[in-house]
Amino acid sequence: MDYIVILDKTILIVAIFIVSLAVAAYATFGERKVAAWLQDRVGPNRAGPFGLLQPVADGVKMFMKEEIIPNAANKKLFIIAPAIFMVTALMSSAIIPWGKPFEIGDRQFHLLVADLNIGMLFVFAMVALGSYGIMIGGWASNSKFSLMGALRSSSQMISYELPLGMSIVALILFAGTLNLTEIVEMQKYGNWNVFYQPLGFIIFLVCVFAECGRAPFDMPESESELVGGFHTEYSSMKLGLFLFAEYIHMFISSAILATLFFGGYHFPGIDSLDLAPNIAALVSIVVLFSKIFFFIFLFMWVRWTLPRFRFDQVMNLGWNVLIPLSLLNILATAAYVTFF
């Protein structure tokens, strides 16, 4: 392997890392602003112009807070849990194609870290691992609230991973590949998968909400019933990591949603513009990010509209509604692929 590839990938990894963190930081700010706007308020506007330095202030606040580890907690697991949550949240960004390749000299630089031919499976693996952070954190805290939160979270994640996976099976049947780059290239002409898989999209969207632990499925946290759910006992930057990772989850999920169902970095008519390859690459990044920001806004919009589901309603929706629906979706797609 020559060193340019290593350099290219290193730069890309660092860039994605920084961008994810920056987007997550400003998503916390955006969340509060969107919440305020939806409630006819102004939102944070004191720190810096328009409150733009609010995430910095929040970060400083988190670092300055007293760090408390409960006596009865399992110390090692207690410390490692937020790290696991954060790492798994960031991992799935490795296989997302962020844009068209740049051309420098006669080389093409692809804007994705790993071109896995089993890309979708990798995403599932990381999503499934994500619940370990919550489970370990909740268990290691040795607190009833944390344990309840962790229990709810794990049962919810397991329930919703099934329809999530099955809605993707239908998409994979339709696309014929697990590779995300190929799935994006298929949707080049505005023939986005959402038009062919509307039911699959809705199931996927609902499951992503549940997997991210976002309202109306924020069972793991349920601040009104469980204090803070799995992160009740956490304080200082460990709590910050948990809260922060939730926003990274949201960012990556939005990227996956855009990639799988909304044409990724393509928009209809991008090829007819006849742009130079490097400019086209820049445009494609902007296109992907505007789609991602739309989905992040959707996440917030839904959160500040809907109340939380009751736990039995969550389970009921998962097992009795979404799983049969996704099975039906697979059958219909399989029939379509076989007979047409």
């Binding site: 969107v34 305020a36 706007w37 939806l38 409630q39 006819d40 308020r41 102004v42 506007n45 809705i202 919009w301 839904v302 500040w304 509209t305 809907l306 929706l317």
Partner: peptide, 25 residues
């Protein structure tokens, strides 16, 4: 099916997005 009610609720909150805020700074 929840979805009609969800969409209705979201349209209501979207309307509020463009309303003038009641805040006095």
């Amino acid at each position: 099916a929840y979805l009609p009610a969800v969409l209705k609720g979201m349209s209501i909150t979207l309307k509020h997005l463009f309303k003038k805020e009641a805040t006095v700074r």
